[in-house]
């Protein structure tokens, strides 16, 4: 559907949870270094689809996944794929920020540490670099040793983004990452996304059509576990081809 080079390729993906067919025959190419948003009514499967990308979904019991998810040509679900290195490639930003139970500095340094970085100076550099990257540095540089839970919720979400970026992922997955935030913090995060897409592939799940419009290059409309429409933001939001999409985005257009 697009001419862009795909970063994530989904082929014939089917997901059953507790016997329910949640995702039906999904095939899609997510373009490299663009922002792609999944939209659709709640319960349509958009978050489930996102979670198949970093294999957090199959941590739950009673989940059956068939089909392929290829990242840079490597199948995530092939038995000899090593899960932790896959996950390292993908930063995750969840609905509410979940700072780890440690101070601000250690939160950002955590990923680098578990991946073998022990040098104090290097870690200092990494922490500063990524905190600057999410425009948090100036706000926290004097209290890096404070528990991360002392930050405001908007700051926490940016901290979580910095923590994710610090392990140098290629892809950032956002699961309605602004739904717990106030309008100003939301704006902060959205601006960051626009800045990040030069370097990263971003995949967002959102239920706010205006947000999808503001930040994404491509939009995927999912309904009842199926992809109904996939195209550029303009195409899907302003000129949808399918009736279901039309009905769904009508509220946005009017």
């Amino acid at each position: 559907m697009t001419t862009e080079k795909p970063h994530i390729s989904v082929k014939n993906l089917n997901v059953h949870i507790d016997g329910n067919h949640i995702l039906k025959n999904i095939s899609i190419d997510i373009p490299d270094k663009k922002v792609t948003s999944f939209i659709g009514p709640s319960g349509c499967g958009k978050t489930t689809l996102l979670k198949t990308f970093n294999r957090l979904l199959d941590r739950n019991g009673n989940v059956e996944i068939t089909g392929q998810v290829l990242v840079d040509g490597v199948d995530l679900y092939s038995p000899d794929t090593e899960v932790t290195s896959i996950r390292k490639k993908m930063g995750l930003l969840s609905q509410r920020p979940f700072p780890l139970p440690m101070n601000i500095y250690d939160n950002v340094a955590y990923g680098a540490r578990i991946h073998g970085q022990r040098d104090k100076k290097e870690l200092d550099k990494i922490v500063e670099h990524y905190l600057r990257g999410v425009s948090l540095w100036d706000e926290v540089k004097d209290r890096l040793k404070d528990p991360a839970t002392r930050l405001s919720i908007g700051q926490q979400q940016r901290l979580c983004l910095a923590r994710g970026l610090a392990v140098e992922p290629e892809i950032i997955l956002g699961d309605e990452p602004t739904s717990a935030l106030d309008p100003i913090s939301t704006q902060h995060i959205e601006e960051l996304f626009l800045k990040l897409k030069d370097k990263y592939t971003l995949v967002l799940v959102t239920h706010i059509l205006r947000q999808a419009r503001r930040v994404s290059d491509y939009i995927v409309f999912i309904y009842m576990g199926e992809i109904i429409e996939f195209g550029t933001t303009e195409e899907v939001l302003l000129n949808p081809k399918e009736k279901l999409t039309k009905d769904y985005v009508k509220g946005y257009i009017s």
Partner: peptide, 23 residues
């Protein structure tokens, strides 16, 4: 989500365990 945060940074189950113990 706390576990998921560690996993998404490429953490192993043992590393996640250590975070949870702390929590």
């Amino acid at each position: 989500d706390i576990g998921n945060a560690v996993y998404s940074l490429g953490g192993t189950r043992w590393e996640t365990s250590k975070i949870l113990i702390r929590q």
